Amino acid sequence: MGEITYARGDATVPSVKGVKVIAHVCNDIGGWGKGFVLALSRRWPEPETAYRAWHRERASNDFGLGALQLVQVEPYVWVANMIGQRGVRTGSKGVPVRYEAIDAALARLAGPARELHASVHMPRIGCGLAGGKWSRVAPLVSERLVRRGVAVTVYDHGEG
């Protein structure tokens, strides 16, 4: 266990045994409707329902940049909603991705992943619609998860 594993395929259907956490990045404005979340919603309604409730009740919870919400969708599958982008549009403040928020959310994920003895599966988080660069995200994943003994597989869509 020393580095990120890369695989072709769909991060919503990890083909490994044991407990799995599917991690992805959400925005901080309650929007759910583009990108990887659509693949999640096609498989399970719970992550979107939980995220929308988390956002709706944000005055009384920890919803915000860097926060983590774990949602169980099957007996051995969890989805990690991680708030890692500010808004959804590129504007005067640059792209929506917030590396420090992804870093904080990954740090929050490490403990539960270890307690569950789970492997973590993800697309190249923060690098699609959020506009981030994998060269900046990969070291965060390595530092926060891999170095703490959590197996991580990153999926690139496409033919095997």
Rank of each mutant, 00 (worst) to 15 (best):
S142M: 06
N61G: 11
N27Y: 01
K34G: 11
K34N: 07
A23N: 04
A7G: 00
D28W: 02
E74M: 12
N61V: 06
V88H: 10
V146R: 08
R58I: 01
F63G: 03
R52T: 12
R108T: 04
M122T: 03
V150M: 13
R89Q: 07
S119E: 07
A50N: 01
A50L: 04
G132I: 15
V77Y: 07
T49C: 07
A59D: 14
K93G: 15
N61M: 09
R56T: 11
V120I: 06
L70F: 01
M122E: 07
M82G: 00
G160C: 14
G30P: 00
M82T: 04
C127W: 05
W32G: 03
N61H: 08
H121K: 14
W78Y: 09
F63A: 02
K133N: 09
Q72M: 09
A53L: 01
P45C: 02
G2Y: 08
L38H: 01
I22K: 01
R8V: 14
H24K: 00
R147P: 12
V37R: 02
R124V: 02
E57Q: 09
W78V: 05
I4S: 15
Y6D: 01
G30A: 07
V150R: 13
H117F: 10
G31I: 05
A39Y: 00
L38P: 02
C26V: 06
V21C: 08
P112M: 13
R98F: 05
V120S: 03
S119V: 00
Y6R: 10
P45S: 12
D103M: 08
S135L: 10
V21Q: 00
V71F: 00
R43P: 00
Y51R: 04
G160K: 13
L65N: 13
H55I: 07
N27V: 00
L40F: 03
A80M: 02
G158C: 04
S15G: 05
L38K: 06
V154Q: 03
P47V: 07
L70E: 14
V71G: 01
D156G: 08
G132A: 04
V141D: 12
G87C: 15
W78P: 00
R43Y: 06
L145G: 11
V137D: 08
R42C: 14
W54I: 03
K34F: 05
G64C: 12
V37P: 01
A50C: 08
R108N: 04
L145F: 10
A104V: 02
A105H: 07
E46P: 04
V97F: 02
L70D: 13
G132P: 07
N61Q: 03
T12Y: 09
T153V: 15
L109S: 03
I102V: 15
L40D: 07
V21T: 00
